[in-house]
């Protein structure tokens, strides 16, 4: 019995112009359209808009945007000394955070990748800060890092060390935000490393040990090279994340003291949402986009060269 025949006829009755190929194409577009529409409205549209805004002088209160070409970029890069101070702070933050985060994440992963009694508990403890509210995290640390009355300094005093006024001295404030950020986010990278370590075949390690390799040699010559793809991913996302840090700075230091923790994302917020210089803030956002993109490409290039 031919069951397909009447159905085809019915379809052709309704839309005789619809060929099979056209219909399949239409159906495919219908299936992907929610994602495509979402991408256009919420990603591509704003991205194009930011490019346009970056070439305007637009103060929200004045209600008019004047096209100024590349003036905002020129002002930022060549006439605004604050910008370079802010970039320096962002670079210092990234240089401090990325290696510390990755080293700690790898150490924790090595300790917690194999099963032992209580391993799930320890993994949960180290991952919990990742899902904790960033604002709550910062408030608690702000309290702990008080000058004389802070818990951290009181603990240091027990061993005869006079702690600094952590969040009121520019260099210490930067160190404090880096370390507290690392403690908050290290759990995510730890999980990625644990997954990668568990994917390393045990045979490789056993073979190396049979050949007389020490534990250190097994790690440096067998495991570490196999972790390289994961390391690259972690390096890229941690670097991008470090340039985008905002909530932590906003709550803990507000960019101070003496602009010592004024990083790029916070500076963009200040220009756009405090001073309402939308055009200038958009230009800064474009510059940040280029910096992050360049860093990512450099990292990928280094990785490719290493592989070759």
């Amino acid at each position: 019995m031919d069951l397909s025949r009447p159905e085809t006829t019915a379809r052709n009755d309704r839309a005789p112009w619809l060929t099979l190929k056209t219909r399949e194409m239409l159906e495919a577009w219908l299936f992907v359209s929610p994602t495509v529409i979402g991408f256009l409205i919420f990603f591509l549209g704003p991205l194009v808009a930011v490019v346009y805004f970056s070439m305007t002088e637009w103060n929200l209160l004045s209600q008019k945007a004047t096209f100024v070409g590349l003036d905002n970029f020129n002002d930022t890069l060549f006439k605004n000394p604050d910008f370079w101070h802010v970039v320096r702070n962002s670079v210092v933050f990234a240089i401090g955070l990325v290696p510390l985060n990755m080293a700690l994440a790898l150490t924790l992963a090595l300790a917690l990748s194999r099963p032992f009694f209580g391993v799930v508990f320890f993994r949960t403890v180290f991952f919990a800060p990742v899902i904790t509210s960033a604002i709550a995290w910062a408030i608690v640390w702000k309290f702990l890092l008080q000058g004389e009355g802070g818990v951290i300094n009181q603990m240091l005093a027990l061993v005869g060390i006079t702690g600094p006024n952590w969040l009121r001295e520019p260099n210490w404030a930067m160190a404090a935000v880096i370390v507290t950020r690392v403690i908050k986010m290290v759990g995510l990278n730890m999980i990625l490393y644990i997954a990668a370590l568990q994917a390393v075949p045990r045979d490789y390690e056993e073979a190396a040990r049979l050949e007389g390799a020490s534990r250190w040699q097994v790690f440096t010559m067998v495991i570490w090279p196999l972790l390289a793809p994961t390391t690259l991913v972690i390096l890229v996302i941690t670097t991008i994340g470090s340039f985008k840090v905002f909530d932590h700075i906003y709550q803990m230091t507000g960019g101070g003291p003496e602009n010592g923790t004024l990083v790029l994302a916070f500076y963009i917020y200040q220009q756009g949402f405090k001073f309402f210089n939308v055009g200038y803030a958009a230009a800064l956002a474009m510059i940040m986009f280029v910096i992050v993109m360049a860093l990512t490409l450099i990292q990928v290039w280094i990785r490719r060269r290493g592989t070759q």
């Binding site: 009121r168 101070g256 003291p257 003496e258 602009n259 001073f275």
Partner: peptide, 17 residues
């Protein structure tokens, strides 16, 4: 006022030492 406060903040930080 927002710009004035932003310009003033680092200088006030230096004062309160």
């Amino acid at each position: 006022v927002p710009q004035i406060f932003a310009a003033m903040a680092p200088k006030m930080d230096a004062l309160w030492k």
